[in-house]
C-alpha cells in the first residue's frame, strides 16, 4: 500500500524532472534536473525490489555520466547561459508526441506478452547474487558481446582524438 503510493509519487516526480531537463534554459539546471531524475529512477528500482540495479544506476548515471556532463557544461561561457525555458518549434513538439504515442502502443502490446504469472516470485529477485549468477550461467555470451561492443566504443573515441591531434 505505502509502496504503491510512493511508486506513483516517484513516477510523477520522474516525469516532472525529465521534462524540466528538456525545457530548462540553463544547461546546469538541465543537467541537475536530469541527475534528480536518475536518482528517482534508482528509487523506483528500490521500490520494485531491485537493489543492485538501483545502486548501479546511481554509480554509472549519476556518478560518472552526469559528472562528465557537468564538466563539459561548466566550460561554456558563463554569461551566455539564460535562465528561462527553451522554446521548441511546433514540429519538434509534434515529433516528440508521435514518439510518445508509438512508445505507448508498444507498451500496451508488450504488457499482454510480458505478464508475469499470478503469484510468481523468484527468491532473491534483483539481488546482486542472483544477477551475477544468471549473467555468468545463462547469459554469458550476450554479456561478453555487450562488453566487446563497449570496448569498440572506447577504441572509437580514442581514434577520434588521435585524428584531431594530427591536424
Amino acid at each position: 500500500m505505502i509502496s504503491n503510493v510512493l511508486l506513483y509519487i516517484t513516477a510523477v516526480l520522474l516525469v516532472i524532472t525529465y521534462l524540466y531537463a528538456v525545457i530548462a534554459g540553463n544547461p546546469v539546471y538541465s543537467a541537475l534536473s536530469m541527475g534528480a531524475a536518475f536518482f528517482l529512477t534508482s528509487f523506483l528500482f528500490v521500490l520494485l525490489g531491485a537493489p543492485f540495479l538501483a545502486a548501479v544506476q546511481v554509480i554509472i548515471y549519476v556518478g560518472a555520466m552526469l559528472v562528465m556532463f557537468l564538466f563539459i557544461i561548466m566550460m561554456f561561457d558563463l554569461n551566455k547561459t539564460s535562465t528561462g525555458t527553451v522554446r521548441y518549434k511546433p514540429s519538434t513538439i509534434f515529433s516528440y508526441f508521435l514518439i510518445m504515442v508509438v512508445l505507448l502502443i508498444a507498451f500496451f502490446m508488450a504488457k499482454g506478452v510480458l505478464k508475469m504469472p499470478e503469484g510468481f516470485t523468484i527468491v532473491g529477485f534483483g539481488s546482486a547474487e542472483n544477477i551475477g549468477f544468471n549473467l555468468m550461467r545463462y547469459y554469458l555470451l550476450p554479456f561478453e558481446l555487450a562488453s566487446f561492443i563497449l570496448l569498440v566504443g572506447v577504441f572509437g573515441a580514442i581514434t577520434f582524438i588521435k585524428k584531431r591531434d594530427k591536424e
Partner: peptide, 15 residues
C-alpha cells in the same frame, strides 16, 4: 548491495 551503496552515495557527494 553493501559496498555498492557506498560507491553510489559517495558519487553523489562530488556534486
Amino acid at each position: 548491495v553493501g559496498i555498492l551503496y557506498v560507491f553510489a552515495i559517495a558519487s553523489m557527494g562530488i556534486f
